[in-house]
Design a protein around this nucleic acid. Structure first.
Length: 577
DNA sequence: GCCGTTTTCGGCCCGACTGTTTTCAGTCG
């Protein structure tokens, strides 16, 4: 049985929850939460690291004890003695109550002691019967809030794609900017860090008349419900259900507040710890030496106060960025404007919504030097066969003669069959500039078979790019079982690039794997996978994810000129022959 | 339970809002 990093993280999270209910040492609890986060966001499989004999206590936040517990979980089939002991000591399922907004350890404990409640279902019944308000320390309001929270938790998802969050927030930011008392507005939080999904959005506003701003905020037409509303802080739920928190500060505190609310929490704790060592205190109002405010109007000034250069928001996950900043080794992150072209797009010849010409003209308008046309080739469904590909190639030749400043590349997105062969004859591939090979079927193969399948496809001389390598969909489908570390090593050997598909539901490769590809010197193609002219806008999300993975311009295939790109493709062909 | 540019022991980020607790605990971010 393969133990995933997420399984280990989940054991640690549960231990933290249960320790919290036992009112254990808060720092011990935090250590378990930190460890859960470290393991969860780690790209290589912890199980593999163990097999290679690596010392896990080298991981940040993992010491000898937790390294031992990880080994225990891996070898013990997914659990460890501490979790089992805690589960035995506490009523079954009580940990899940902690995830209900408004309920912390004290109240959960109270609910169990006073009314024997330890499941969401029991809690729902107790709220409906009006029992909660009779408990000392709770009242009618608390009961109502908890009832709503339980109901909404049972009915809907709590995270939104980055694209949806951006769509909802941009008009709200414009609305806030209209108010005369507003000096600056910036969306912070995980949205600013470009996380693939966001749970809620934090907005920071600079103003001298803060109460007017929070009042303006809660009057926004998109508000579904006001959760809280104070003079400097307010929370709303948009009609679509997403929570938005606004925090207003004086303009001289804007940088400190922006840094504070951008997070991540782990990054902030590190920065504040650095400040403490210099006898400084950092809060959302600024950096303080005793009573004196010495910085905070800009984020740069906050970083400078602890001796660091500016760290890009996408890096702020406490994954080594602070050490890199200290050592002058921060990456020069890739930017949207570095992209010279796009290697993955669809037309009406398969499942795209625009014609070849329309796609070409849009790419030209956006200043791309090249656009790869990669319609689907597969059995059945909307796709191109060998004949259609040949006709498309002729049309591409004609358009390339006609269009200025842009070159269309003849490509295809070919399905990888279950045995790793491609779903298109070699003769049809021969006329093309390159192929993207992707998994679109047989997602359930074992890790060994899936990995072998992908490695074989990468060895085909036409396959210069492996498309959305793990085939995950953030809206539902988990990543396939795949030894991505091995795929990356293989990519290095055969000169195949790995794709970062910019569709917000994919963002595949994810940030951790991008980091791994970067470390191995494997090129990443940040592609739109556009199915219409509008989809080129998605590149911003791919760039965001790539920046989270520390990618620099040199790590990204489509920052190359057309000539350099062709050289990379040729190198792959030579390597696999 | 982790960690070390004062430390292998003694620290571990900090403030706003809500509700009900007549002075502040609990929760959240």
């Amino acid at each position: 049985m393969h133990i995933h990093n997420a399984d280990i993280a989940s054991v640690f999270s549960e231990i933290a929850d249960l320790l919290e209910l036992e009112e254990g040492n808060p720092f011990r609890i935090r250590a378990y939460r930190n460890a859960a986060r470290t393991v969860e966001t780690l790209a290589p499989s912890v199980e593999d690291l163990l097999q290679e004999g690596r010392d896990l206590s080298e991981l940040p936040g993992i010491g000898a004890d937790l390294a031992g517990k990880i080994a225990e979980i891996v070898h013990g089939g997914g659990t460890c003695a501490l979790r089992e002991q805690l589960r035995h000591e506490l009523p079954e399922g009580i940990g899940t109550l902690l995830r209900i907004p408004g309920l912390g350890p004290k109240r959960v404990k109270l609910l169990y002691q006073e009314r024997g409640i330890h499941t969401p279902e029991q809690l729902l019944r107790a709220c409906e019967d009006g029992q909660l308000r009779t408990i000392h320390g709770l009242g009618e309001k608390a009961e109502q809030r908890i009832l709503e929270a339980v109901q909404s938790r049972m009915s809907k998802t709590t995270r939104y794609s980055i694209a949806l969050a951006v769509q909802l927030i941009e008009p709200l930011v414009r609305y806030l900017k209209q108010h005369p008392a507003v000096v600056r507005v910036e969306a912070a939080g995980s949205l600013r860090r470009m996380k693939e999904t966001v749970g809620d959005v934090d907005i920071v506003v600079a103003s001298r008349r803060m109460e007017e701003v929070t009042a303006h905020f809660v009057r926004y037409e998109g508000v579904g419900r006001v959760i809280s509303h104070g003079p400097t802080r307010a929370s709303i739920e948009l009609a679509q259900g997403m929570q938005v928190d606004l925090r207003a500060v004086e303009p001289e505190s804007f940088g400190a507040a922006l840094h504070y609310f951008t997070g991540s929490k782990a990054h902030n704790i590190e920065i504040r710890t650095l400040a403490l060592k210099r006898d400084l205190k950092i809060n959302e109002y600024g950096v303080f030496a005793g009573e004196a405010r010495i910085a905070g109007d800009t984020e740069e000034s906050v970083f400078a106060s602890v001796g660091l250069p500016f760290i890009a928001p996408e890096l702020r996950e406490n994954r080594g960025e602070i050490e890199a900043a200290r050592d002058g080794k921060l990456p020069h992150l890739v930017q949207l404007s570095d992209l010279k072209g796009d290697l993955h797009s669809h037309t009406r010849a398969s499942d795209g919504r625009n014609s070849l010409r329309e796609m070409a003209l849009e790419a030209q308008r956006r200043g791309m030097a090249y656009l790869g046309i990669t319609d689907h080739a597969r059995h059945g469904g909307w796709s191109v066969d060998a004949d259609a590909l040949a006709r498309q190639a002729d049309e591409i030749d004609r358009l390339n003669e006609e269009l200025e400043g842009i070159t269309l590349l003849k490509g295809v997105e070919v399905d990888i069959l279950e045995d790793g062969a491609l779903d298109l004859p070699d003769a049809a591939l021969a006329r093309l500039d390159y192929a993207i090979a992707s998994l679109h079927t047989a997602f359930e193969l074992s890790r060994e078979k899936q990995t072998a399948r992908v490695l074989r496809a990468m060895d085909h001389s036409s396959v210069c790019v492996l498309g959305h390598p793990t085939a995950r969909l953030l809206t539902g489908r988990a990543a396939v079982e795949l030894d991505v570390e091995r795929v990356i090593r293989h990519a290095r050997e055969c000169g195949c690039a790995l794709e970062l598909d910019s569709q917000p539901e994919r963002l595949d490769l994810n940030d951790s794997y991008c980091m791994m590809a970067r470390d191995q010197g494997v090129l990443v193609a940040i592609d739109s996978d556009a199915h219409s002219v509008l989809d080129f806008d998605n590149l911003r999300y791919g760039i965001g994810q790539g920046r989270r993975g520390w990618l620099e311009k040199r790590n990204v295939l489509n920052t190359r000129t057309l000539g350099q790109l062709r050289e990379v493709f040729d190198k792959h062909r030579t390597a696999v022959h």
